[in-house]
Design a binder for these strands. Structure first.
Length: 896
RNA sequence: GGGCGCUUAGCUCAGCGGUAGAGCGCCUGUCUUACACACAGGAUGUCGGCGGUUCGAACCCGUCAGCGCCCA
């Protein structure tokens, strides 16, 4: 017997553990079944499950469970990425708490410590995904720093290097002065900062008293200025182009150049050029062959090594001693000192408040410095071409499709990808340097040594590059490295290309783009057929959730409060394509009620002797109620499949919600009650049969989104083992096709609704049982379901007469699909109220008739509209007219 | 500045050429022996404005307005 109350907490852990232990979440490459594959977008190993993960993984799990039930060899690949910067920061923080520092302990000891941390506290998220019910193939779990995946990384790096698609270059990077590493363009967060725009005066060489003014928000970089640029067409500066300015403080001679980069409308129209510290200036510097001295060290302190030799004393303009004193000063302190000095020299024209965008590191949180360094680069533009083409030709399809534009926009303008990071935690770059700096890129130290021997003709000492690769470099390989590549494993052969990648739009650049590039280059085929982009989960007011706002919803707390099924169902039901989700506890309460409803319906059937019966054949069902329910169930199953095929998780959820609650509970079970309470016999057997059959169908249909309550009911009711539901075939259903017998149920439903509405409007006491007189050409539904109508509409045994309302005195009149219903209400009915009710219905019918008449009166409509539409319109007009006639007759009877 | 999206019932959202829908909320009634996390009934919409295409527009096109996001 089912418990009275549905208690998710009591069953979830047990059900999940049983399924995991039974191995039903695992793929089997030996099975002949067609594969269905999703690789999880690898969460960060330092991370914990947030509501965005809950959405992302719920959607993946729904797809995987559904396809698995369809018989596909489903593989949902789990794992995490090593998150170079984040993990290194976590461990460094732990060390700091113990008074230790990574440099002091050395690289090897530090890495040991990181692995220890990973073993102890890494991957909390994988345990949390289990609480969500995610049916990942855990025995196949991978980690980007695994031996196998690391091998793939080395293989890819070496291969791309030999192909000339990876190279070393000295370019500007986004440098994080706190983390002391280059970071990706995508890890740069533009923050609006209220700063100051300073205008500086640079003296013109050979023109005493003449200055050129330049505006800057970072005056400390002026030490590295190597030119002043003006627009070629700007008449104000035409005579200065080709001459020189004297850079204050350092006394350097810098040319005044013409370059269209300078915007005559902006600032003073002249702009200082600091090639080593600004991306735009770097390009200008390249175009004009300017020197590019670096004046900031890795921690963004002033360093003078590259300009020390050229400092020159110029009275009133340049003071080498002052500049020398700046060495080692932190950038903002140096800024202050430089401004004070310039002001003292009369070279600071003005300072204006200025709001501008300042790039910050999204991890470290400090302003970044563009910095000129040697780094490893990947030729993304070349790799992007086939990826763009794959999307253009539809080999990979985005859902919703408009995200393809975002993908194209970024891919078509892709910059060289800086793949080296000045970290210790990560894949160390397989490059070795000879004594003269010659580079050997090989898979192993031994191979590098052999190459060096061949190159130099003798043994030499090699030094390995200390840098590691961007975490995304290994993530980019995820769709094939996790399947065993570069080994040619059965999994790789069977499951690549994968079917779907499910992710948020913010990750199109990170994952989608890079996986596409690497997948196509190394596997010759796209990594996934579909990319499903879902929205962001926001709070109920549409605000982004954040710790600082205090509006975060913890999925684990939600699971505790509402059950994993309710959390999953809510996320699914709200996942409309292309829209963010506004999540509220109220919504979740509503869907928890749905799980409870399912539980209670099952309990009711169990109490009424409904038991699973695999031998029961729907095709043998004869009764109208059974046919009606089977038809609705088939349509619901069909729609569920269709919705999931189209990745319409919202339609899938709401369609089943409506079927279970409205069709199955509100009508079928209510219709079944008189039969279940009645005498034993074939009719009761058939109702029990169809009830168990369709409940079993509903449990299967709902299982992908509500795996826990469905599995529990499946087992407790006796359909089978809870674990076995995971691989029980998913119902296919078929398109709705109305059966004649089933229409009689609809008539009974309509009669009940009409009577209920009349009773309520006329204030008939709920407990009063009214007589019912029925007439009309179509009354079979009323006859067939009289007991149901009596019970649900609270009426006496229907009396079938020639004309329902004739000679019965005052009463209420209504109609149901060709049947006329009359409720004699002598002494009960308020005739004025009934007149008002009928009048209102008449007005509604009249409006309908007017609309349809106008439409049919339009010659264009008859001439051009489809025939079926015209016919339907005519039919509706007749119905409206008949309804008006009936209502008129009823009104006449109770006139006065 | 460039691009994308959104604007439909009080709220959150479906619908995207032929009868305006759902959930929640609201109002009224009900302990009808599965379920008050329930049942029944009800009210509420110039489908953002304007213009166009069409026999017909919430839906297609143009335009304006407001909101949001991404990239400079």
């Amino acid at each position: 017997m089912l418990d009275k109350a549905f208690d998710p907490a009591a069953m979830e852990a047990r059900l999940y553990a049983a399924a995991e232990a039974a191995g039903v979440f695992s793929a089997d490459p030996a099975r002949p079944a067609a594969p269905f594959t999703i690789v999880i977008p690898p969460p960060n190993v330092t991370g914990s499950l947030h509501i965005g993960h809950a959405l992302n993984n719920t959607l993946q799990d729904v797809l995987v469970r559904w396809r698995r039930m369809q018989g596909r060899d489903a593989l949902w690949m789990p794992g995490t990425d090593h998150a170079g910067i984040a993990t290194q920061m976590v461990v460094e923080r732990l060390l700091a708490a113990q008074g230790q520092e990574r440099r002091a302990m050395g690289r090897e000891a530090f890495l040991r410590r990181v692995w220890e941390w990973k073993a102890e506290s890494g991957g909390a998220i994988t345990r949390q995904l289990r609480r969500l019910g995610a049916s990942l193939d855990w025995p196949r779990e991978r980690f980007t720093m695994d031996e196998g995946l690391s091998r793939a990384v080395i293989e890819v790096f070496v291969t791309l290097h030999k192909q000339g698609l990876i190279y070393r270059d000295r370019r500007l990077v986004n440098w994080d002065p706190k983390l002391l590493t280059a970071i990706s363009d995508l890890e740069v967060e533009s923050r609006e900062v209220k700063g100051t725009l300073w205008t500086l005066r640079y003296p013109i060489e050979g023109a005493p008293g003449r200055f050129i003014q330049v505006a800057t928000t970072r005056p400390e970089t002026m030490l590295g200025d190597t030119a002043v640029a003006v627009h070629p067409d700007d008449p104000r500066f035409a005579d200065l182009v080709g001459r020189f300015a004297i850079l204050p403080l350092t006394g350097r001679r810098i040319p005044i150049i013409a370059d269209a980069y300078s915007d005559p409308e902006k600032g003073t129209g002249a702009v200082k050029i600091t090639p080593a510290h600004d991306f735009n200036d770097f390009e200008v510097g390249r175009r004009h062959g300017l020197p590019m001295p670096n004046v900031l060290d890795p921690e963004a302190r002033i360093c003078l090594e590259e300009i020390a030799g050229e400092l020159a004393e110029i009275p009133g303009v340049a003071e080498p001693d002052f500049v020398r004193a700046l060495a080692g000063q932190e950038r903002f302190a140096a800024r202050k000192a430089i401004l004070e000095k310039l002001e003292a020299l009369g070279l600071l024209e003005k300072a204006e408040p200025h709001t501008h965008q300042v790039p910050h590191g999204d991890r470290g949180g400090v302003p970044l410095e563009p910095r000129l360094t040697w780094q490893w680069y990947c030729d993304a533009a070349t790799l992007a071409r086939p990826a763009i083409e794959a999307v253009e030709t539809g080999r990979t399809v985005f859902v919703p499709k408009q995200w393809e534009n975002t993908f194209f926009a970024w891919m078509r303008d892709i910059q060289p990808w800086c793949i080296s990071r000045q970290l210790w935690w990560g894949h160390q770059i397989p490059a070795w340097y000879g004594p003269d700096g010659h580079i050997f890129v090989e898979r192993t130290q031994q191979e590098a040594e052999a190459a060096a021997r061949a190159h130099y003709g003798r043994e030499v000492a090699l030094r390995r590059d200390e840098d590691v690769l961007d975490t995304w470099f290994s993530s980019a390989l995820w769709p094939f490295s996790t399947l065993g590549w570069p080994e040619r494993t059965p999994e790789l052969a069977k499951h690549y290309p994968t079917d779907v990648l499910v992710t948020g739009f913010d990750i199109i650049f990170f994952w989608v783009a890079r996986m596409m590039m690497m997948g196509l280059h190394f596997m010759g085929e796209v990594p996934f057929r579909h990319v499903v982009i879902h929205g962001l989960v926001r709070d109920e007011r549409g605000q982004k959730m954040s710790k600082s706002k205090g509006n975060v919803m913890d999925p684990l707390e939600l699971i505790d409060a509402y059950g994993a099924d309710a959390v999953r169902f809510t996320l699914c039901a709200l996942a409309s394509p292309g829209r963010d989700i506004k999540l509220s506890k109220q919504r979740m309460e509503g869907y928890r009620a749905f799980a409870t409803k399912l539980w209670n319906a099952a309990r009711f059937l169990e109490m009424n002797g409904v038991r699973p019966d695999p031998a029961w054949k729907p095709a043998d069902a004869k009764g109208m109620l059974a046919r009606w329910l089977l038809e609705k169930a088939d349509a619901a199953a069909f729609e569920a499949n269709r919705s999931l095929e189209a990745f319409r998780f919202d339609d899938y959820a709401s369609g089943l919600y409506a079927f279970l609650w409205n069709t199955y509970c509100d009508w079928f079970i209510e219709f079944a009650k008189p039969v279940l309470n009645g005498p034993d016999g074939p009719e009761k057997e058939e109702v029990r049969g169809v009830a168990q059959h369709v409940l079993g169908l509903a449990l299967r249909l709902l299982h992908p989104v509500m795996p826990f309550v469905t599995a529990e009911l499946w087992e407790k009711l006796g359909y089978g083992d809870a674990v076995a539901l995971t691989t029980t075939p998913y119902p296919e259903g078929r398109e709705a096709a109305a059966e004649a017998g089933a229409a009689l149920v609809d008539q009974a439903i309509e009669a009940i609704s009409a009577i209920r509405s009349a009773r309520s409007t006329l204030n008939v006491p709920a407990s009063a049982v009214l007589p019912l007189r029925v007439s009309g050409a179509q009354t079979q539904g009323i006859r067939a379901f009289a007991p149901q109508i009596m019970r649900l509409a609270r009426v006496a045994e229907p009396e079938f007469v020639a004309a329902a309302a004739e000679g019965a005195g005052p009463g209420a009149f209504c109609a149901a699909m060709g049947a006329e219903l009359f409720l004699p209400l002598a002494g009960v009915v308020d005739l004025a109220a009934e007149r008002a009710r009928l009048g209102k219905e008449r007005a509604r019918a009249e409006a309908e008739r007017a609309k349809l008449e106008a439409k049919l009166a339009n010659p264009g409509f008859r001439a051009k509209a489809e025939e079926a539409v015209v016919a339907e319109t005519e039919e509706r007009l007749q119905d409206a007219a008949a309804e008006i006639a009936r209502l008129d007759a009823a009104l006449t009877r109770i006139a006065n």
